[in-house]
Computed example of a mutant assay.
Amino acid sequence: MSASEIASSTLQSHVAGNPYPGRGLVIGKSADGSKWQQVYWIMGRSPNSRNRQFSLDGTTLSTEPYDPSKVEDPSLIIYEAMLELPNQFLVSNGDQTRTLCDGLAAGKTAKEALSVRDREPDAPNYTPRITGQLDLTGDSAEIGLSILKANKIDPTYSDRHYYYPQEPAAGIGYGLTTYMGDGNPLPTFNVDPLLLPIAATPEETLDLYWNALDEDNRISLAVKEIALDGSSSRVVLRNKYV
């Protein structure tokens, strides 16, 4: 099976055929190979989680309440999801995006920057913190992925997984989600980064994933298109509640 066939199959099994993969991110190349793309989506089961939408300030993507009067606990649902430094493009499912951004700006590695963070404190789910980095500062592009999740023996500790996969072919991205599916507690993502498809344009990629995500649980989706040399970027997004 080719990489593109694996990616399409995984989209169907892990996203389209899964009522709750949770929050997810993908970093890869457009189908024509002319751009990079970053994908990020949020889902929700509880009223507090569903009371969200994406907002955009330049190329900074953030979550914000859809109805501020109904916010129960903003600590894990309001954050900057996409941030940029020169030729560095960051995406995550929590406020560790800011931790990573500030750490890189101070000269730290991604591992050093994220060493001060742990899985989310939302027992019994202990939602993983998933983070992606597209680094275009060197002679070749580098994708870095991180997942911080509860230790299987003692969830008060966090296991730290870092991945630096080979640059993908056109139309292929590497992805992480927070969960394997629905459940109580929610089953933590427990496999290597997924191969997932990337369409030719961010608008097409947005439609691809929006249509794949569970209609009841999907909340917001964004796709950032990035020039191969990192010189420019733009974001398209869709919110369930408009």
Results as ranks from 00 to 15, higher is better:
Pro121Lys: 03
Ser233His: 03
Gln37Asp: 10
Pro86Ile: 10
Thr205Asp: 11
His14Tyr: 07
Gly175Pro: 01
Asp122Pro: 12
Leu90Phe: 12
Gly28Glu: 05
Ser75Glu: 15
Thr109Gln: 00
Ile153Val: 14
Asn211Tyr: 00
Ala105Tyr: 05
Thr10Ile: 09
Glu120Ile: 03
Pro197Trp: 05
Ser30Trp: 03
Thr60Pro: 00
Gly181Ile: 11
Phe189Arg: 01
Thr97Phe: 02
Thr10Glu: 14
Ser140Asn: 15
His14Asn: 09
Ala81Glu: 04
Ser9Asp: 09
Glu203Phe: 06
Cys101Arg: 05
Asp73Gly: 03
Val71Gln: 04
Leu76Phe: 15
Lys152Tyr: 12
Glu167Ser: 12
Leu206Val: 02
Tyr126His: 15
Ile77Met: 04
Gly230Gln: 11
Gly107Lys: 04
Ser2Phe: 06
Lys108Met: 08
Asn184Val: 09
Ala105Trp: 00
Asn190Ser: 15
Val116Tyr: 01
Arg234Gly: 04
Asp67Phe: 14
Lys35Ala: 13
Ser115Thr: 00
Val223Ser: 02
Asp118Gln: 07
Ala110Glu: 00
Ile143Asp: 08
Glu120Phe: 00
Thr177Lys: 03
Gly132Val: 06
Ile147Thr: 13
Gly33Asn: 08
Val39Leu: 14
Ala7Lys: 06
Thr59His: 07
Asn211Met: 07
Ile147His: 00
Leu25Thr: 05
Arg160Leu: 03
Leu100Ala: 01
Thr59Met: 13
Tyr20Leu: 11
Gln88Lys: 15
Lys152Ile: 07
Ala200Asp: 10
Ala31Cys: 07
Ser232Leu: 07
Glu80Gln: 13
Cys101Phe: 02
Leu237Arg: 06
Ala141Lys: 15
Arg117Gln: 06
Glu225Ile: 02
Glu225Ala: 12
Cys101Gln: 04
Asn239Asp: 02
Gly94Lys: 13
Ser231Arg: 03
Tyr66Asn: 14
Ser158Asn: 08
Gln12Phe: 00
Pro202Ala: 06
Pro47Gln: 09
Asp229Tyr: 07
Ser231Met: 08
Glu112Tyr: 02
Leu104Phe: 09
Lys240Thr: 12
Thr131Gln: 02
Ser55Thr: 11
Leu90Val: 09
Ser232Phe: 02
Tyr66Thr: 14
Gly144Leu: 11
Ile219Val: 15
Arg129Asn: 12
Ser55Tyr: 04
Gln88Val: 14
Leu134Met: 07
Val242Phe: 05
Asp229Lys: 12
Ser49Thr: 12
Arg117Ser: 11
His161Met: 13
Gly28Gln: 05
Asp95Tyr: 05
Thr10Trp: 08
Met180Cys: 13
Ala150Thr: 07
Gly94Ile: 04
Pro187Lys: 08
Val15Phe: 15
Asp207Ser: 03
